[in-house]
Design a binder for these strands. Sequence first.
RNA 1: GCGCGAUUAGCUCAGCGGUAGAGCGCCUGCCUUACAAGCAGGAUGUCGCUGGUUCGAACCCGGCAUCGCGCACCA
Length: 952
Amino acid sequence: MTDALPKTYDPVGTEARWQRAWESSGAFHPDPGAAGEPFSVVIPPPNVTGSLHMGHGFEAALIDAIVRFQRLRGRNVLCLPGTDHASIAVQTLLEKQLKAEGTSRHELGREAFLERAWQWKAHSEGTIKGQLRRLGYSLDWQRERFTLDEGCSAAVVEAFNRLHEQGLIYRGEYLVNWCPASGSAVSDLEVEMKEVDGHLWHFRYPLSDGPAANGRTHLEVATTRPETLLGDTAVAVNPADSRYADLVGRTLTLPLVGREIPIVADDHVDPEFGTGCVKVTPAHDPNDFAIGQRHDLPLITVMNRDGTMNEAAGRFAGLDRFEARQAVVAAMEAEGFLVRVEPHRHSVPFSDRGKVPVEPLLSTQWFVTAEPLAARCRDALDHPAGAAPRFVPERWEKVYRDWLTGIRDWCISRQLWWGHRIPAWFVVSETGGAITDSTPYVVARDEAEAMAKAEAQFGGGTHAHPVVLEQDPDVLDTWFSSGLWPFSTLGWPETGAADLQRWYPTSVLVTGFDIIFFWVARMTMMAGALVAEGGGDPAAWMPFRDVYIHGLVRDENNRKMSKSAGNGIDPLLLIERYGADALRFALVREVAGAGQDIRLDYDRKSDTSATVEAARNFANKLWNATRFALMNLGGETPASLGEPDATLLQQEGRPLQLADRWILSRLARVNGETAERYASYGLGEAAKGLYEFAWNEVCDWYLELSKRRLQVPAELEGPAREAALADQRSARQVLAKVLQELLVMLHPLMPHLSEELWHGLSGEPDATFLALQHWPQADDAALDEALEASFAELIEAIRVVRNLRAVAGLKPAQPAPVQFVTGRGELAALLQEATADITALTRAESVAVLSPDQLEVSRGGAGGQRRALAGVCGELQVLLPIEGLVDLDALRGRLEKDLAKAEKEIKGLAGRLANPNFADKAPPAVVAECRANLAEAEAQGELARKRLAELG
RNA sequence: GCGCGAUUAGCUCAGCGGUAGAGCGCCUGCCUUACAAGCAGGAUGUCGCUGGUUCGAACCCGGCAUCGCGCACCA
C-alpha cells in the first residue's frame, strides 16, 4: 500500500486477493499436533441442490466471526466445510429434469441415474464452494467432506451395523407416511400439516342383522376421506356412550362393499363430536391403525403406492385417490347412504418435498428405536455438571427437550436411489429368488461379511440350494448420515484418528431453529449411541458443547427466504455490489440478542440494499481513517513508533494529552467488551459496539483532535519545535495503536478489509496474516472512568458551541469568540486544558473560561456583550459574544427552547421529590441525583430567563 | 388446544426498573486536503390496549388484541 491510496475502497479485487492468499498458504488448515486449546466447528453442510441463498450467507457470517475470533485468541481452530447429498431433494430435482427430457429414472436404470446424480453434485458443489469462498469463510478446504464420500459412507455402514447389533434398528410392517410424488416413505418430520378447506361427508352404515331394540336401523359416520371407507373394518363408539352401548358387538354392513364390520368400543372416540361414531380404516389412518391394534381388526389396504386404488377397492380400482373420492361419494349418494355434506376446514398432512398429501400406508420399512437414544439425551440435559449441550438462547432447550419426550420411532428407509444403500442383504434363496416381507436378511459391513453370516445361518445342512444374496435396494434417510456429521467428518469410526482425538467434541454448533429436530437431536442421539459407548459424562460424547441457534433471514415482506418460495437472494449479487465484508457486517449487525429473525431490506428492482450500503459506507470510513493515518505517520508503523504510555503525563516528558488518555481508555474498554461479546455469541452487539467506537469516537473525535498535532509548522524553532515534535510523536503512537487494535477487533466481522488495512498500517509482509495474529491484550491501566465522563462533558460543550454557531447562521469558516462560564472548578480546569482542542473544533477566535463572578465583572466593564448568543449544558453556560452578527430572533428562539426544556424537567423532578414516599423509599443515591438534577435544571432555567430579559 | 416469539420515531431495529436511543429516510448549512459512500446542526414517539406490583414501569406480573412460528390434532 502506498501513500497514494484511492479515496474509496474497492472491495472486489481486495477480497479475491486475500482469499487466494489465505487458502494457498494453508492459513486455515490446522495441525492437530499444534499448540493451543482446540476449538472446532463443523459447518451445517448445505444441500447440493443448487446454490446458496442469504440464509446460508448469514450463517456463514456468524460462524466465521466466531471461529476467526477464537483463532485470534490463540486457539487451535478447525472449521470444517462440507456438503450434504440431500437424498429426496436432489432426486426430486433430477427426476423433474428427466421428465422434461421425456425420460425417467426407471428408463435410465439405477447406475446411469446415479452417474447423473454425481455429475449434478459436482456442479452444485462447485457453485456452493465458490459462494462460500467469496464470503471469506475461513474454512479448512483440505478437510472438506461430503455426506456420501467414502469416509462418511463407511461411517454410515458402521453406524447402521452397530445400532442393529444394539437392537436399536428393526424392520417391520407399519403405517408410514407415504409420499406418492416421490414414491417413498418419509419420516414424521418430513410431513407438514396444512389447513385445507374440505368437506365432512355424513354416511349411513346399516346394521346387518336388523333394527336395534330402539328401532335404530343404522349408524351415521362422518369422514373427510370417503375413498377410505372401502378399507373400513369397523365402526367405533366411546365405551361410555349410552346411546350405542347396546350396539357394541353387533355388526354393520359396509355400503358399496358389503363387508360385515363390527361395532367396537374405544376410548379414542369423542362422543361430543358429530354423531359419536367413527369409521375405522386401520390401513389408512394412524388413529384407526391404533384402534385396529387394540381390537385386533384386519388391515385392508385399498391403495397402490402411486396413489391409485387397488383391487381391494373393487369397482373403484385404478382410479386416482382423489377421483375415487368423487366416485365413492357419487355411488353412496346414488345408493342412498349419503346423509349430508358440510364444508369443513381441517388439517391435511403434506409431504415436505413432494408438496402432495401424504398417504398413510402399510409398508415394511426400517426403523430406529428412538426412545433409549432420546432418554440418554434427556439425561444429558439434566446432568449435574450442566446441560449438554448448552443452548444459546436458552429457550431452545425446551423445544429440544419436548421433542425428545414422547418421541416416536424413526423410519429410516427411503425408496430412492440417491443415498446410502442400506447395508442389509436379503437371503433371496430362501424365498424363491424374490424379496418379500418374509425374506430373511443379514446386516453386515459388506457383501462378503453378509455372505459369511448368511452361509452360517442358511447354508449347508438341510438346505440343498446355494445361498443367494440381494442387497436391500432402498437407501437411508439423509438425516441418518447427517446425524453422524460431527464425528464422521473427523475420522470416526477410527477412534484413534488424530482429528477426532483433537477436535471432538466440537465446540459449538451454529444452526437455525428449523432443524433442531431434524438434525441437532439426531446428532446428539447418534453420538449417544455410537460415541458414548456405554454412557458416561455427556461432555465426553455430546458432539458439541454449545448450540447457538440463529434466526432466519426474512425478505423485505417479512417472508422467510428460501429457494422454494422463490424469494431467495443470491449473496453474490450483494457481494459484487458492496463487498463481502459489507454484506457480512450488515447481516451480523442486524442480530439482536440471539435467535431473532433478521429482515434484510432489499430492492429487487435495483438489487440494492440500504442496510448493506450502510455497512459498505462503514468499510469506506475505515479505509479513509487508515488512509489518513498513513498520510500522517511519517512512514512509521505501530511497531516502530512503540507503545504510548498512558500513565505518563505531559509534564513528565511524554506529552500524552487529554484526548490521548481518553481514547486509550475507551480503547481498553471497548477491547474488553468486544472480546466478552464475541466469546458469548453477542455478535450483533460486538458489531454495533465497534461501529460506534470506530465512527463516533475514533473518527469523529480523536482523529479530528489529532490533526493539529500531527502537523508541525515548519517555522517552529528551538524548544517549541522540540515540544511540537514530541506531541506529534505521541499523537502518532496513539493513532497507530488505536487503528491497529481496532482492525484486529473488526477482523472477525470484516476479514478482508481489516487484513488489507492492517498490512498497510503495519507494513508486514503479505505472507504474515492478520487472521493469525493475537487479539491485543486490553490495557487495563489506561481505563479511566472519570476521564471518560469528563471528556463526554467536553464533547457536549463543543456541541453547544457548534449549535449556537448554527443558530446564529455563522459561516463555517468564520471565527467567533467563545466564553464558558462555570462555577465548577474541575470542569473549568478541563476546559482550560482543552482550549486548543476547542479552538480547533469550533473555529473559535478565542476561548475564555470564566467563573460566574468574573463574568459579571467583564460584563460590567465592557458593557457591549449583553446580547451574546447563549446556551447551556449541564452546569455550563456557553456564550458567543458576537453582537452585531446575530439574528436576535434566532437568539431568542434558542433561549426559549432552553427555557422550555428546563421547565419541563423541573416540573418532572420537582413532582417526584414532592412525593414523600419517594424520599423515604428510593435509594439515597437516586434521591441525591434527582436533587442535583433539579438544582441544575433550575439553574439552567434561571440563566435562560435572565438572558431573555436582557434581550428586552 | 398447548407452547414460543414479536408489538418502541416514516422504515429496520436497540434498550428490559430510575428524566426515550441508533441506522436509514427527512429538513438546514457546508466540496473544512482522510472520507459528499462525507462533515456540522436540526425535527420526529400517549414505547399495541388494559388492569396490577412499585416511591417510580417501555422494562416486572395478570388479562386482552394483532402478527409470526412451533407442537399436537376430532372422524
